[in-house]
Write a protein that binds this DNA or RNA. Structure first.
Lengths: 212, 212
DNA sequence: CTAGTTTTTGCCTGTGGGTCGAAAACCTCG
DNA sequence: CGAGGTTTTCGACCCACAGGCAAAAACTAG
């Protein structure tokens, strides 16, 4: 589960209470039950840590099968990427906290790779899909949206450009509302929302594109 | 396993000899053994059908977990996409043949979805990676390469553009060789090869790209 | 040498992202 | 109430690059 908190992309980790890797930080998860879907299983295990209704997007990353990934037993794991909007702050148990993805502690198993793969997937999709809906609140100004992009991409993004691109593509729509100015003044920001809150591919990515 | 044959993208299928779906066409595969990697397992099962050394590229697609996918038992499957270059013609057993992806017969399980997902993955990656190396022979002319793209994308592709784009990106390099003209004459085609024969991402895809 | 075929190159065009600066809209303080 | 400061928005320009066309190049066959 990733979320932008305090201007940084963070991941939800908990401290293992069992061997192997006792005490190490690790991703939430657990075993699949008979007759259950992987996605269902993920939600079930996450529910023990947070309110899963706050999960705005969930997608499969990859299935790990290296026999050495668990030193004690042979087991497979299917990794998922979950995204939480910026405006919610799920209640979490004692052993569970958010960690900036750019400063991960030692992680159990191959969880470090998984987190980094999740970040890469997110970064790529920010560019050619509307995934940002899953990081953003229902309504937001362009500069707020820009902050989310900056946090996730860890590089500068121009608000001008972001607005033009997302509007041209029809990803965003204006609500007609505007936000009140802060105490420092400034022109009040127009509010936007995502036209769709389900994953959509912007268009067959740019390069070598169809005749038109 | 996908390959371009007779100018069309085709998939290798075999006819099931057991229930469920006895007699239906299905993708090659089988059960994972203890201590084995998924990729190893795939290669082991494919080896029973073809010479796996001819597999130029193998990548994981997704893991299917719908409890209803097998009517007789509860089982998961991890689907892989394998690509075979155009110049080889693997020996296959009696019960196994190639089928055009655009004219699939009834397939067992969820194999139809898998094949179509594989095609989509391939199409997408043709645009922003060098995957085409896995469909192409070691050396080829631009118009031969163009035929591969046309077959996989099922739409027109201009040779002019293909050449310029792939050369500019440094994906292709000239061998210096040229091919002899056909019986109809015509200017002899220059031969190219892929600079790398392992998957490489061209660049963080076009849209919303870094400052430069 | 001519006609026909195929490949290659050069040029022009259009789309769309990147950037910068000015204008707009609001605040606070003197 | 006006000046100065702040933040957002809009417009204008630039440029990289893909798409397309047509001419040139390089060959064969008759």
């Amino acid at each position: 589960m990733l979320q932008v908190r305090d201007g940084r992309l963070q991941v939800l980790l908990w401290q293992r209470a069992r061997e192997p890797f006792l005490g190490a930080w690790s991703l939430p998860g657990g075993y699949l039950e008979r007759g259950e879907t992987l996605a269902q299983s993920i939600r079930r295990h996450l529910a023990q840590k947070v309110d899963v209704r706050e999960l705005a997007h969930l997608e499969q990353l990859t299935t790990l099968s290296d026999p050495g990934r668990n030193p004690l037993d042979w087991e497979l794991a299917t990794a998922y990427l979950g995204l939480v909007p910026r405006d919610v702050d799920p209640e979490v148990p004692e052993d569970t906290t958010w960690h900036p993805v750019s400063q991960l502690p030692e992680l159990a198993f191959d969880h470090r790779e998984i987190v980094l793969a999740g970040r890469e997937r997110l970064r790529a999709k920010l560019s050619y899909t509307n995934v940002a809906f899953a990081l953003a609140p229902p309504e937001f100004s362009i500069s707020e949206l820009r902050e989310l992009y900056v946090a996730a991409l860890e590089r500068e993004v121009s608000a001008t450009n972001l607005q033009r691109v997302l509007l041209r593509r029809g990803v965003l729509e204006a609500t007609g509302q505007r936000r009140e100015s802060g105490r420092a003044g400034g022109r009040p920001a127009a509010l936007y929302r995502f036209r769709s809150r389900r994953l959509e591919i912007t268009d067959e990515f740019a390069v070598l594109r169809p005749p038109a």
